[in-house]
Amino acid sequence: MRDTHCDYSGDRDEALVAYLYDDIDPAARALFDAHLTTCAACRDELSGLAGVRARLGRWLPPERQPAAASRSSPATSHQSPATRRTWWREIPAWAQAAAALLFLGVAAGIANFDARYDSSGLSVRTGWSKRAESAVPAPVRGPETNAPWRSDIAALEQRLRAEIGRSNNAGTTLASVATRPDRPAAALDAETLGRVRSLIGDSERRQQRELALRVAEIMRDVNAQRQADLVKIDRSLGLMQNNAGMEVLKQRELLNYVLRTSQRQR
């Protein structure tokens, strides 16, 4: 990529990056500006890297609403920002644990869902990690590795239990912040239940959307593979027809020969 004819006196790569991001002091910028007027290689590379930045600029994370806005239950949505509390601070630790376990269980089922249609037919796989070809070879492990999320669930459960224990002892921990004496216990329970349901609903919707996406991708792959198969079949049929035609021609020539020979004998 680097042109050997570039005669920039300083560290050219560093200067180029600093110039690219406009994070450069004025003297260095002036120096590099002057260099650019005479160096086609640097101009080309700068333009290429700016193109990369343009592509990077289109890489957006999936939409995500802020927790405070998206996860508030209707019961608390009327509260002013000053009194609104973040969802995870109001839900008791046991409810957080339940929601987290449920979420992990569902996610474990279809996380990294991967389905393929190829010469060996339709195959479906899921997992926490990337496909084997892109990962470091997995070490040989015991039977418990068939369900890796179990250890995650156990660890999370242990953590949350510890959290619950701490919240029972200390008055300022996360769960206890939500317990306010001016609110009846039934109202708190209903609110908590509503939020847990909302959390579970959010999680399910996300999973379903992901699944729909995967299914659409499968359908696209299946169609592509079908097209490829049809082309292959078409070619094979053409070959067979060609072979059959050749065979007929041979038979006809043989028949003509036999007829000619028999006429001569008469």
Binding site: A108, F113, T126, W128, A138, P139, N146
Partner: peptide
């Protein structure tokens, strides 16, 4: 953690 976690089968 991800790099050493194996792939699992779908239900």
């Amino acid at each position: 953690r991800e790099r050493r976690t194996p792939v699992v089968q779908a239900p």
